[in-house]
């Protein structure tokens, strides 16, 4: 596997011609990591260079096995795959089938590389989940347009997935709030957002804090009431004992005893 890095981030070091070739519209969706899978050295290197010229990072694989192994390792994930159809070993169509059959990879956009004569296979690949196709010999403007369109879709989908993750976190938080297990720290990140989800997260955190405050206040009131009840109960027991005949007799006897003692005193 070979990785070539785009030079768009360092335009000042380029000639005027190179700077023009790496204009701001070359990669409007930002630099992407692009996996180029082609057994042909000339096309592989050329594609790598054209991607690099537009500020992308090209990761080059010489066959389907190497590409699948790299994708499944999941290190430094790529944003899009440029995949040649006719290769020895696992061909492009089979690589596409394996990518689309893998839960961890199936959302990865794949652009097939084909010759004009492969059009039937291209149609089968698009039916099998390929995002687009690119014809050899490469036309730089077409490569750029198709890559950027595919990247735009990918970025949109990434944002939607992130949004759904946040919605899931919020619904989980609502369930946790109901069951009393809510931790406001879990929503800290979402609450920073300036969109409606961020607003909802902040509302949820505020509600949770208000619920906690009310719970604490209620606990304090319950504690105070318990003490009062204990005191009242004590008094009622004393009253109950002192109102008995036996207690009255004892008090009279005590009174008499105190009287006789005070009379007998010198």
């Amino acid at each position: 596997m070979e990785v070539t890095r785009g030079s768009r981030g360092d335009v000042t070091g380029l000639t005027t011609h190179e700077a023009a070739a790496t204009g701001a519209d070359a990669a409007p969706h930002g630099p992407a990591r692009v996996l180029v899978v082609d057994d042909g050295e000339i096309n592989r290197r050329l594609l790598g260079r054209l991607l690099e010229q537009d500020g992308h990072i090209a990761v080059l694989a010489t066959d389907g096995e190497e590409a699948l192994a790299m994708l499944r390792r999941g290190e430094d994930p790529v944003d899009v795959v440029l995949l040649d159809i006719l290769m020895p070993g696992i061909d492009g169509q089979e690589v596409l089938r394996q990518i689309k059959g893998d839960d961890a990879l199936r959302h990865l956009p794949v652009i097939m590389i084909s010759s004009l004569e492969d059009i039937t296979t291209v149609i089968q690949c698009i039916e099998g989940g390929a995002a687009d196709y690119l014809q050899k010999p490469f036309n730089r403007a077409v490569l750029r347009a198709r890559l950027n369109a595919t990247l735009a879709d990918k970025r949109l989908r990434d944002r939607e997935m992130e949004y759904l993750d946040r919605v899931r976190a919020l619904t989980d938080a609502a369930v946790a709030l109901e069951s009393g297990d809510f931790q406001s720290t879990e929503l800290e990140e979402i609450a920073q957002r300036e969109d409606p989800l961020g607003h909802l997260a902040r509302v949820l955190v505020d509600v949770a804090e208000e619920v906690k405050r009310r719970e604490r206040r209620l606990q304090e009131q319950v504690r105070a009431l318990t003490i009062q009840i204990d005191r009242d109960e004590q008094q009622s027991r004393v009253a109950e004992i002192t109102s008995t005949d036996y207690f009255r007799e004892l008090r009279e006897q005590a009174h008499d005893l105190r009287s006789s003692l005070s009379k007998g005193a010198p």
Partner: peptide
């Protein structure tokens, strides 16, 4: 056109030709 596309990199295009 290859030269234009690769930023007038004659050395790079020559390498492609030599590979061919």
């Amino acid at each position: 056109q290859l030269l234009v596309d690769t930023g007038d990199d004659v050395e790079f295009v020559r390498e492609l030709v030599d590979t061919f």
